[in-house]
Design a protein around this nucleic acid. Structure first.
Lengths: 247, 247
DNA sequence: GGTAAACTCCCCATTTCTGGGGAGTGGTCA
DNA sequence: TGACCACTCCCCAGAAATGGGGAGTTTACC
């Protein structure tokens, strides 16, 4: 019975003491759902460690080697798409979520070559802290059965939460930069493409003052330019896309 | 059969044309899971939010009035807890997630008074957007059955995604600019705070070439500086926050 | 064979950003 | 009262970004 399986999995994840245990659990339940592969990637404390802190998977060794070799570039399409939704998606829906470039097609073709035929990815985010995803994939020639999507959604989210607990990282409000009101105002307009001079006119302050606020904001986030400043502010919720994209 | 129910729900949400339809679907499936109430919301101060925010629910009218009067949007304990996890949680677990203040106790007591006895909340986060959640609650004196958690997790996430689509938080159907691979490479490094010269060294191309790719990318997005370029690329999935955040 | 697009490189002038320094006011809190 | 912080303004100099122009090669496709 499906709900029983899910409950048992949730309980097992909660009591798991190591990442290896989590991996074993994932492998077992992936098979039960008709998947041959799983991959859980968890980025702890993204601003400081963009590289995955937890990466558990049973993808073909070939795939990992290739992926790491090519790693200089932007990340793979599945990962990109997982930042755009809050619900799990089958890989067949990728083109609806992101624009597939030539390189993406290469990546997807290569993944099929090494035996990752079709899959389902569950995104997981905690504001200001961690981002990650949990994917399930089928081997050559098989397509996965959509009936399992609800369970996969639950399993993915639960597994991610387990990884989060095992990695021992919880956000504390202290280590998040605190911005003053004026600093936020300036970042807001900078994110909308305004120069410091334009911002100063909008806010009715001096040009130098606007510059000063931006300086201070950069130093709080520990970054050296306005692009990174805006991205960090977006990531931890000081800004939203609706703020930044309005004309 | 549970999986059938879930699939039917997912399909219905995908084809729903209005928020009202979504509300009807949620109400029905909430009842099926043994809940009398549901509430799907962005965690903003809805009455004065400058941006489009989602709120659909069948909580008692009394509750909504009080909620808005007290301006609980971001400070409600259930909402606060949902910012700290990526998986659904029963309200009985609140004390393990957040520190319950006196104020929180008042809020929870009031919610019980108006008829919200026990509940389960599914958080929903997409980087760069307002935090949100989908809750299910039982009426007076009833406790909910934990067997339904997996389904509730799926239903909550799916419903939130449907609400996102219907409220136009993210325009998915809009034609997004197509970037060449090199343009995306340059944006990728620019978003990580590199100057055009540094990017050129990383990619092994000339300084002028890197500048040229950035020019062309800006013009495709119709923006005039790299900050907006990076934000647009993040927004439509050409980049992820994991790509962009520092180091 | 012609066209389009991607990728590469070069020139110019101007604006904008960034990092370094300094200083004064007003408000809060111990 | 003193310490701290938010906010305001000022100067300087070098680095970087932006917008405009141009041009060659390769690859893919009709």
């Amino acid at each position: 019975m499906v709900l029983k399986t899910a409950q048992a999995f949730a309980f097992a994840v909660e009591t798991a003491a190591t990442i290896d245990e989590l991996a074993t659990l994932l492998e077992a339940i992936a098979h039960e759902m008709g998947f041959q592969h799983y991959a859980l990637a968890h980025h702890v404390d993204v601003p400081r460690a963009p590289q995955p802190a937890i990466r558990v998977h049973n993808y073909p060794g070939e795939w990992e080697a290739w992926f790491d070799a090519e790693r200089l570039g932007p990340s793979d399409p599945v990962h990109r798409a997982s930042h755009l939704t809050s619900v799990g998606f089958p890989w067949s829906r990728l083109p609806q979520l992101i624009v597939i470039t030539k390189r993406d097609e290469e990546i997807l073709a290569h993944s099929r070559r090494v035996g990752l035929a079709d899959g389902f990815t569950v995104p997981a985010h905690v504001p200001g802290e961690s981002a990650g995803s949990c994917s399930f994939a089928t081997a050559h020639g098989r397509t996965f059965r959509t009936e399992w999507m609800p369970l996969a959604q639950f399993v993915g989210a639960t597994a991610f939460e387990g990884a989060r607990r095992l990695s021992g990282v919880r956000r504390t409000d202290q280590d998040r930069p605190r911005l003053s009101d004026r600093q936020r105002d300036c970042i807001y307009w900078a994110a909308r493409g305004k120069s410091d001079w334009e911002t100063s006119q909008i806010l009715g302050i001096g040009h130098d003052t606007a510059i000063q606020h931006m300086k201070e904001a950069r130093s709080r986030y520990g970054v050296t330019n306005r692009t990174q400043l805006a991205i960090h502010a977006l990531y931890d919720g000081a800004l939203t896309f609706t703020d930044a994209l309005k004309r």
